[in-house]
């Protein structure tokens, strides 16, 4: 492996943090989902790196499933959000505060 595993992990970690940052700062439901996507991708990178590190295929399998999960997430999430937008006209998460 050319790139040490530690570096891969660091990259994954930074990407993960970026995803978290996006999730908690962007005042837009879609951007939150995108942030989560980024987090998932960070995990996927870590898996790929680990799979290479251990020379095992299970990590790769994980990545495939993560991609599937991400796809589901986007489809379900977008469906929800678009429907919500149609009703309330807003992507702003702070406008959803019915409950207290």
């Amino acid at each position: 492996m050319i790139v040490p595993f530690g570096h891969v992990l660091m990259l994954a970690g930074m990407l993960f943090l970026l995803g978290v940052f996006c999730t908690v700062t962007r005042r837009n439901l879609i951007m939150i989902i995108l942030g989560v996507e980024v987090m998932l991708n960070a995990a996927a990178i870590a898996f790929v790196g680990a799979a290479l590190h251990w020379q095992s295929l299970e990590g790769q399998a994980f990545v495939l499933f993560i991609m599937a999960i991400a796809a589901t997430e986007v489809s379900v999430g977008l469906a929800l959000i678009v429907y919500a937008y149609r009703r309330s006209g807003s992507f702003d998460p702070s406008s959803y505060n019915l409950f207290r």
């Binding site: 595993f5 992990l9 994954a12 993960f16 995803g19 999730t23 439901l29 939150i32 989902i33 989560v36 987090m39 998932l40 960070a42 995990a43 996927a44 870590a46 898996f47 790196g49 680990a50 590190h53 251990w54 299970e58 990590g59 994980f62 993560i66 999960i69 997430e73 379900v76 999430g77 929800l80 959000i81 919500a84 998460p93 959803y96 505060n97 019915l98 409950f99």
Partner: peptide
Amino acid sequence: EAGIKYFLTGIFASSIMIFGMALLYG
């Protein structure tokens, strides 16, 4: 609203979990 909140928390938590799995696997 319930769904969105549930959903957002859920995907957030599960992505954290997946990252945790990656770490553990690594």
